[in-house]
Design a protein around this nucleic acid. Structure first.
Lengths: 339, 339
DNA sequence: TTGTACGCGTTATCAG
DNA sequence: CTGATAACGCGTACAA
């Protein structure tokens, strides 16, 4: 069956295409009776305006894009949840693209989306994106962009982040207060803004506690999962003096658990562990994981709301629109120090 | 800055619009030199064809839709991962919509997408969708559809599912072999195909073990999370004879853990627990959770591949294209019965 | 209050 | 080999 077009409705109603168009768009220069007739038939035939014809005319795609490194990660799925809610409230669709942490993918995706396919973009950078040349096209084409979590500092647009520096500081301090003296720091990609902030918080907390910063305890793991566990195990095996681990991303906390299990190290007795994480199973782990939890859903919502300010109200987004939300420290068994 | 159009390129190159179009599309009736000139300028100006104009012409959106109940769920995020991979390989975009398990949402989303916005649809039904009237429009408009996991039996199209009946049977048998005699079955929405199949497997396993089916042990929890834990706790408190729990969806296993904790019931000594789950933290839980794990990533991939068979090769999808993949039983501590 | 005419950017067809 | 023209479906001046 052919798609229902305005032309078809018009013929059926003995009206012109433009009259039907205006009737369905509830314009005030159309008789009420005509509107009713048109609407009734449209509903009956399940007419949906061809979105591409509308877009072509209006230069609006009614679609926003989300570009993220991965989706198999609670932080991002929660954020998407928030974004999708706001998008739907604004009558918008959501296009999702995954970069799999690869610069090249990110580049080609953005080039593609910048061609007018989306009215705005929510972006969280890949860990391997060292520069921002590939984002220039977004500025040129004036595509509104909001970064969330993994921001790009080169682009002067709105960002929604969390208090990464403070969280890193707090996490480290918590380990120190639990008695740790040799704290390992695990991160992905030193280039990422969040990584640098969290690491800086870690370093400063050590300094304020008069503990030497030991480069050998700072691991950057940008390789795949299997290797991550291995390298953590290796570190823990070589440096038996490590008594605390600060995992700056969710997956690394889990790899630490796995590595400890392999080495038969007990958490929290032998090693205490804290991790950035949105896992809802954190309290049910063995032992329950102490976490820094980001308000992922809120991040998504707020980022989307900013984006729609740009899209609907034509506001030019600047760094002044940026928001910093607070993460929460949830203290659990994995950092317990006895009474 | 204005978007770059063919018209613009044509003017710059002193060629006609249609020549440039064909040059960029590498048609064989265009001189090599012309092609080179056109391509060079296009690259220089970062020309991207307007996707909506192309779609309008070709009736192809280069976009597929995913409609799922929720995204904050490992099964679905893994499936999306698989889908996205295939979509990208086919040069397609992915539109995501969440129904939040609500029939009305599902209905309006599908009505919207059926209007030509997508070339095909991957669908996993909401738990509250009792009928399939809202899917009729997809058949009328001839939008290719592949169901995955939560299928709709009324629509004669391809489905990618897992061996739900066998898995339900196997999970229950596993509990029986571990010594359980009073096994609770937790599910969402009795209407869902997967729920019915898993429950049937449970019932048949009991029958084959000559154990009476007790309606009071079968809980259907379609309300929100907070209430789910409460109701499970209530059941476990009232029926202290329950010695096994079979959670037919991931979240319910976690609620069972929470309920047991509140009642100070020990797993697996007091109650053994098995659950359908794609949680990668299952082995790290306290105790490690025995799971039936669905090949979510593969489900997504295969479903998408079927869809592209319809889209690219113009194959009419029928139930004969359906696939049933196998889930895996991972035995862990939560069903341990001593040596 | 309704109809006519045009253009959005692209591509297929046909003419040259 | 290249150019002109028409058409996809919709929305909007402008005319009636």
């Amino acid at each position: 069956m052919k798609p229902i077009s305005l032309k078809l409705l018009a013929r059926e109603l003995n009206l012109s295409v433009s009259t039907v168009s205006r009737a369905l768009n509830d314009r005030d220069d159309i008789a009420q009776e005509t509107k009713d007739r048109a609407r009734k038939l449209a509903t009956k035939l399940k007419y949906e305006p061809n979105p591409y014809a509308s877009s072509l005319r209006s230069n609006k795609s009614k679609t926003i894009g989300i570009v993220i490194p991965e989706i198999d990660n609670h932080f991002f799925s929660l954020a998407i949840n928030g974004i999708e809610e706001i998008a739907r409230a604004n009558d918008y669709h959501v296009l999702i693209s995954l970069t799999h942490e690869e610069y090249q993918q990110e580049k080609s995706i953005i080039q593609l989306l910048a061609g007018g396919r989306v009215d705005g973009l929510l972006l969280s950078m890949a860990s391997t994106s060292q520069n921002s040349d590939h984002l220039a096209v977004l500025e040129e084409r004036k595509v509104p962009v909001v970064f969330f979590d993994r921001v790009c500092e080169d682009l002067a647009t709105a960002r929604v982040t969390t208090d990464d520096y403070e969280s890193g500081y707090r996490a480290t301090t918590h380990l120190l207060e639990a008695g740790c003296r040799k704290i390992a720091h695990l991160a992905i990609s030193g280039a990422l803004s969040i990584s640098r902030r969290r690491l800086q918080g870690y370093a400063d907390a050590l300094r304020d506690a008069a503990i030497a910063y030991d480069q050998a305890l700072v691991l950057t793991l940008d390789q795949d999962d299997a290797q991550a566990t291995d390298r953590i195990r290796q570190l823990l095996a070589e440096r038996r003096d490590i008594d605390g681990v600060f995992a700056a991303v969710e997956a690394l906390a889990m790899h630490t658990y796995a590595a400890c299990r392999q080495l038969e190290l007990t958490i929290p007795e032998d090693v205490k562990v804290i991790g950035f994480s949105n896992l809802e199973t954190a309290p049910l782990l063995k032992p329950a994981l102490t976490t820094i939890t980001q308000p992922a859903y809120q991040i998504g919502k707020q980022a989307a709301q900013l984006l729609f300010k740009a899209i609907n109200d034509n506001v030019l987004l600047t760094m002044n629109h940026s928001l910093e939300l607070k993460s929460e420290l949830h203290i659990r068994m994995s950092t317990y120090s006895g009474e």
